[in-house]
Each structure stands twice: as C-alpha cells, then as structure tokens.
Amino acid sequence: MNLLQICDKVWSQACLSACAPDLEEKLGRPVPSSSVLGTISSYYVQRYGFHPGCQVVAFTGDNPASLAGMRLEEGDIAVSLGTSDTLFLWLREPTPSLEGHIFCNPVDPQHYMALLCFKNGSLMRERIRDESASCSWSEFSKALRATEMGNGGNLGFYFDVMEITPEIIGRHRFNAENCEVSAFPRDVEIRALIEGQFMAKRIHAEGLGYRVMPKTKILATGGASHNRDILQVLADVFDAPVYVTDTANSACVGSAYRAFHGLAAGAAVPFADVVKLAPQPRLAVTPTPGAAQVYEALLPQYAKLEQRILSQTRGPPE
C-alpha cells in the first residue's frame, strides 16, 4: 500500500514503474473499504467448503483493522500501553512527515488514520517502578497521586533503548530552569516518566495533524490501562476523558465489523451506525480541572528540550 497516493486514492505511477512492469494491472483498482469485490474463489469452495455465494469485502491491514475494531470516530485516539506503546489516530487533514505512518481510514474513505509507535513503553515503566517504587505498582501509583500536575516544571526523557519516535537513547532530566540534572527525587522521577511519555505522544500526534476536539475521547488498552493513576495523567495531558475497552484481538474484531459493514449495510450507511449496538467502552477517568492550562505551558517546553537532545545527539545541521 506504500504505492498508493492516499489523497487521490490511486496508484502512484512513479512507484509502480520503479517496482515492476504491468504492476497496475496485477494490483487492480483501489476501492472504498466497504466495497464487495465479488464471490470467493472456486479453490476455497472446493478445498475448504466455503459456500459458492460467499462474498468478499475489500481487504485491509492489521493496524487499520484495529482502528475499526476499537470503533474510533473523528478526533478519537486509541492508546495501546504495552511493551511498546502505540497510538492510532483518526485524522481529517493529515500532515505526513518522516515520523509515524499515515493510512487511508479503513471505515471512512474521506478521512485518514495515523499510527505512531514508541519503543520504550511498559518495560521502561517497570524499570522506573523497580528503581523508584520498590518494585510495587501500588507505591508507583501513590507517587503519582502525591505529586502535582506539571511536576513542578521537572521534565524527563527515558529511553533505555533507542526510541523510534524520536530517535533518542538515554535518560535526560531537566529542572524547572531547563538545566539538565543527574537525578530526581523518587516521586518526581515517577511522574516525570509518565508525564514525559504522554507529552511525547501528544506532541508527535499533533505533528501528524491531530488536534484535540471537544468530543475527543481516548480509548486505552494494554497492561498499563489497568492502572487508574497512569490513565489520570493520560487524561490530564490530552485534556480528554479516557475510556477502557476489553476488546481482545481488535484487528480480528475490526475485520468482522468491516465485513458486516460491506455485506449488511453497504457504503451508504456510516460505519458508526453499523456497530452502534456493539459493547461500549467504559469511562475510566476524566481530566483534572486546570490540567489544560498546566500542560499548555509545558508541552512547548518539552518539545524544545526534545529538539535540544536531538541536536546534541546528531550534531549541528550541515
């Protein structure tokens, strides 16, 4: 699909020519995601017993299928808090860059989706828990509750392995005067980690064209989504309510939803109407009053410090 011009929904002739002759004819014409492509091949009927009238809906990849499975709507974010942290974003007007990925939206042909992956996820959180909270999630949560939003201006970057977004490695701590320091008190260290992880996610999401909207909601999954105090920081940084969903194998569920959309409803019915009877996510936390003002001031500072670290790592531009 990297051969597709996502704005025009046609194959890029330059990319096709660079890959193989007559490739466009072999690929076929791109179609909207709810299109029925025809009936299943006779091979599958004979080999696996499919009904010869079984219809096939347009294919998609696992990440777009996950967006469908979690039933995101415009302005929503899905955050998977696992070994790596992953963001799925619903976008109306993307601004592609060298970071992240922009796809066609799997349930709305007029919109787009973005994906961002952050390698230092739960393993980094577990290391700071072990070092600063006596290996206890309870103590970790207590530290988050004991420290104020904004962490007194102390900001941290925690990348024990080379990060994907951005390409930084190491631990970097800055006090309220933007001076780099070697260590933080334990409670400050814990909040600096969690705030830093979520501020980075918001900054890089906005770099791809995402904007928090009044109706924005965040759907959280993965191991850390069971920790209410971590989710509270997520809600505060994004200034949006956080919901949790028990949907497992969201890519498979999303593929089933898309099949139902194509076969039962057709392109004229919005995807949201097709899945409106599906189980709803559960509200976990809402933003703390005053959070928007705190992080509106901190987010630009965090972005500047990130660029400072990157320039120190890469050296001055040629």
Rank of each mutant, 00 (worst) to 15 (best):
N151G: 05
V107S: 13
L81D: 08
W137I: 02
Y257C: 06
P185I: 09
A18N: 11
P166Q: 12
R282P: 02
S35W: 02
T221S: 13
L310W: 07
A133I: 05
L208C: 08
Q312L: 15
G170I: 08
S12Y: 03
I218H: 08
L37K: 00
Q13P: 03
C252N: 00
S33R: 04
A220S: 13
L89H: 01
F140L: 15
L277E: 15
A183I: 06
I169H: 11
L277G: 04
E163R: 08
R314C: 13
S134D: 14
A58Q: 01
L98D: 07
S225L: 07
V212E: 08
L298P: 00
V31F: 01
M113W: 01
L305D: 07
L193M: 12
D22E: 14
V45W: 10
T86R: 08
L277Q: 09
Q13M: 12
Y44D: 03
L116M: 09
K9S: 04
V285G: 13
L98Q: 10
F271E: 01
I40L: 05
L155A: 05
D108F: 09
K9F: 11
C179P: 02
M162D: 02
A291D: 04
L27D: 00
I102R: 04
F88L: 14
Y295E: 09
A78W: 02
D239T: 15
T60F: 08
P317G: 12
G82N: 04
V107Q: 09
S141K: 05
S66F: 01
H204F: 15
R258T: 04
N249E: 15
N120Q: 06
R228G: 11
E139F: 04
G290T: 01
P279K: 12
A256Y: 01
A114K: 07
A68M: 09
S12D: 13
Y257N: 06
L231G: 08
N151F: 03
Q55H: 02
I218A: 03
W90M: 08
Y257F: 14
S136Q: 12
F88I: 12
T216P: 06
S17R: 12
F184T: 03
K304F: 09
E296C: 15
D236L: 14
V188W: 05
P64F: 09
A78I: 02
I168M: 09
N175M: 11
L310F: 06
A303F: 01
A248R: 13
C104W: 00
K276P: 05
V56D: 01
N175W: 11
L310H: 11
M149C: 12
R186K: 15
H226K: 15
G153W: 10
M70K: 09
M149Q: 14
F260P: 00
A256E: 01
F157N: 05
C117Y: 03
Y257I: 04
L115T: 06
E206G: 07
E99P: 00
D229H: 15
Q55P: 00
